[in-house]
Each structure stands twice: as C-alpha cells, then as structure tokens.
Amino acid sequence: MEVRTIKVFTTVDNINLHTQVVDMSMTYGQQFGPTYLDGADVTKIKPHNSHEGKTFYVLPNDDTLRVEAFEYYHTTDPSFLGRYMSALNHTKKWKYPQVNGLTSIKWADNNCYLATALLTLQQIELKFNPPALQDAYYRARAGEAANFCALILAYCNKTVGELGDVRETMSYLFQHANLDSCKRVLNVVCKTCGQQQTTLKGVEAVMYMGTLSYEQFKKGVQIPCTCGKQATKYLVQQESPFVMMSAPPAQYELKHGTFTCASEYTGNYQCGHYKHITSKETLYCIDGALLTKSSEYKGPITDVFYKENSYTTTIK
C-alpha cells in the first residue's frame, strides 16, 4: 500500500517557510505537534488534498525554529505562539472599519479597549522592536488589523473576551517599542525636605499616572512627601515624541487643539466601556464603527496623549 502524501510549508514567522512532505494517514499533531492554519487549530486533523502548498504555523520545537521565533517575536515564552494563534482565530472574524481616516474595530468580545489602543497607536510616533509587531502594525494602518490585535493580546497575556485596560495595554506595548531616546527629568520640591531631581528613561519617561493635564504637570502637581507634608512635583525636561497622561476616570474637559487623542471610560472596574476622542479640525468621538463630532467635550476621561518633541522648564 502506497503512502499518500502532500507537500506543505511549516513556519513560526510566515517569513521562513520549511518544506514538509506530510503523510495523509496521520494527523498534523502526530507529525508536527500543535499546528495552526489561519489561526485555526488543526492539530487533530489529517492532511487533505486542499492543504497542498498551504502554510501551517507550528510551535518552535527545534533550534532553527526557536531562533526564527525569537528573532521575529522577541520572546522565548513557549506558550506565546499558541496564544497568538488562538487569538487570531477570533480577531480574523472582527470587522476593521476605516473611521475618520483611522483603522478602528467594530465592537465584539469586549474589544473596546483594543480599538482605543489601536486608534491611539496610529496617532503617536512609535516604532516597535519585534519585527512581528512592526509588520502587523503597518498592515493594521492599511486596514488589516487582525494579526496586530492578536499579537497585542498575546504580548499582554490576554484572551479574547476578557476586559482590558488601555493604560495597561499601552504599557505592555511600550515595553516592546523603541523608547531608548526618551528621557524625563522631574523635580520634587518640599518646604521641609528641599528639592530632589529624578531622571527617568524609556517607558517611565512617557507615562504618568495622577493627572490628565500635561500643562498642569509642567506647572506642578501636589504629591505627598515622605515627611508627610505636601510637596510639588513638576516637569523639568521632556525628550520624547509623545507623552501619555493618565488618571482614574473623572469628568474632564478636553479643549480642541490642546491634545492629540484621549480615552474615555464609562462604567466601573468590573464592567465598563471605552471610547476614543481625537482632536482634528474639530473633536471626534470614535466608538467602534461609530463616529460623532463636537466642538467641545466633557466626560469621564482616563488617558490623554500629547505630541511632544523637546521641553525644558522655565521655572527657576
């Protein structure tokens, strides 16, 4: 009895394709271990004539594949690729409408935090270190965002349907971005203890939790000093293409032309909904596939993004 075979390709990165001759009487799992086709788990399936010449994702289970996976995804987590594939199996079914010149995501599976993050990423200057993220990001900007969303979920250790947080998501993504040249110098002034300067680099240099107003941050924000008295913390120097200011959701007025974009969060910790506000020729609110415009805006804002380049204080 002759062994019926077909020729397929296996890959971990969709760049390096490895030619395989597979036995049609055995499952993919018996031949390769966990195997995925377009995100779908085909591990328990036997090869079919229609699979001839198709590319299958496999887990990096030998040295060659491990090197290829690390170079593309910059992670050695053995569960990463499987999590990416199972997320992709959902995100490829989502709709990605162009809204006001940006790629958004039609609401499904509690994905409003991903839509808000995706919209924000198209408006701030950011370059990702893992080629996987950078490639998928370019495709997302062009309207094909399924891979990018699935990668975000995998890097953030999230599953489809789980509630997510924009600030946490951005923080994970910033860790995989090139923020080497970003720098922030802060000064804390206390009447009792004097003053202390701190220099922050990388992710810490672009994120701040405690106030939404970048102007206020430049002037000074009140913080408790270690001595128990009130101290003032203010920005001395900022070198970065953008800054992200966050605070627990509270009524906040966004003035046209003073910011790049913002995240609105309605609801409580267990259950809520994100919308995205962007400042173009007027203010726009993007909620999944829905767009509304207004000249002014007041609502429960939790993150505001500002364009920056270089700032030095005039406070002496």
Rank of each mutant, 00 (worst) to 15 (best):
Ala145Tyr: 04
Phe148Asp: 04
Ile301His: 00
Glu239Met: 10
His256Cys: 15
Cys190Lys: 01
Ser279Gly: 09
Gly267Met: 07
Glu281Ser: 07
Phe242Gln: 02
Thr312Pro: 09
Tyr113His: 07
Arg141Lys: 15
Gln238Thr: 02
Ile223Thr: 12
Asn187Gln: 12
Asn100Trp: 07
Ala108Gln: 09
Ala289Arg: 04
Leu186Gly: 03
Glu168Phe: 03
Thr278Pro: 00
Ala136Ile: 03
Phe259Glu: 00
Thr27Met: 12
Thr11Met: 06
Thr292Met: 09
Pro130Tyr: 01
Glu215Arg: 06
Thr302Pro: 00
Phe217His: 03
Phe70Cys: 09
Gln30Gly: 12
Leu118Tyr: 02
Pro241Met: 00
His256Glu: 11
Gly202Tyr: 01
Gln251Pro: 12
Glu71Arg: 10
Met26Val: 12
His273Met: 01
Ala145Phe: 02
Thr313Pro: 08
His256Leu: 14
Ala231Thr: 02
Phe70Thr: 08
Asn14Val: 07
Lys218His: 04
Glu253Pro: 08
Lys218Met: 03
Glu125Asn: 13
Lys158Gln: 05
Tyr269Leu: 15
Tyr84Gly: 04
Lys183Asn: 07
Val58Phe: 04
Pro249Arg: 01
Asn14Cys: 10
Val206Gly: 00
Thr11Phe: 04
Asn129Ser: 10
Gln122Thr: 03
Glu52Ile: 12
Gly164Arg: 05
Gln251Asp: 12
Lys95Val: 15
Glu125Gln: 08
Tyr274Gly: 00
Thr169Leu: 08
Thr5Asn: 14
Tyr155Asn: 00
Lys218Asn: 02
Lys298Cys: 14
His256Ala: 13
Thr313Ile: 14
Ile152Glu: 00
Tyr36Thr: 06
Thr232Asp: 04
Asp63Glu: 13
His18Glu: 12
Val188Phe: 07
Asn111Tyr: 04
Gln20Trp: 09
Pro131Thr: 03
Asn178Lys: 13
Leu81Trp: 08
Thr266Cys: 07
Gly164Cys: 04
Val3Gly: 12
Glu52Leu: 11
Pro224Lys: 14
Trp107Leu: 05
Ser310Thr: 12
Tyr172Ala: 11
Asn178Leu: 06
Phe9Gly: 04
Ala142Pro: 04
Ser213Asp: 14
Ile124Val: 07
Asn49Ala: 13
Val12Arg: 08
Glu2Ile: 09
Lys316Asp: 15
Tyr311Asp: 07
Ala146Val: 04
Tyr57Val: 10
Gly33Ala: 05
Asn111Asp: 05
Thr11Ile: 10
Trp107Lys: 06
Pro248Val: 06
Ala247Phe: 01
Ala177Glu: 01
Asn89Trp: 09
Tyr274Asn: 05
Leu173Tyr: 03
Leu118Ser: 05
Cys227Val: 01
Asn14Trp: 08
Gln237Arg: 13
Tyr297Arg: 01
Gly228Thr: 05
Gly288Arg: 03
His276Pro: 02
Lys46Ser: 13
Phe148Gln: 01
Arg141Asn: 09
Ile286His: 01
Asn178Gly: 07
Thr260Arg: 05
Leu133Cys: 08
Ile277His: 01
Lys46Pro: 11
Thr5Gln: 14
Gln134Thr: 10
Val304His: 00
Leu186Met: 14
Gly143Arg: 03
Leu254Ile: 02
Glu296Arg: 09
Gly257Ser: 07
Thr35Ile: 13
Asn157Ala: 05
Thr302Ser: 09
Ser279Ala: 09
Tyr311Thr: 09
Ser171Glu: 08
Leu118Ile: 09
Tyr274Phe: 12
Thr55Met: 08
Gly288His: 04
Leu81Glu: 06
Ala205Pro: 02
Lys106Ala: 15
Gly220Met: 00
Leu153Lys: 05
Val189Asp: 14
Lys219Ala: 12
Val243Trp: 03
Asn147Met: 10
Thr35His: 00
Tyr73Ala: 03
Thr159Asn: 11
Gly210Lys: 01
Cys271Ala: 11
Ser25Ile: 10
Lys95Ile: 14
His18Leu: 08
Ala262Val: 01
Leu254Arg: 00
Ile45Ser: 14
Asn268Arg: 13
Glu68Asp: 05
Val203Asn: 04
Gly202Thr: 02
Leu212Gly: 03
Thr312Arg: 15
Ala154Cys: 07
Ile6Phe: 12
Lys233Leu: 15
Leu290Glu: 15
Asn157Cys: 06
Leu291Gln: 13
Tyr138Gln: 15
Tyr73Asn: 04
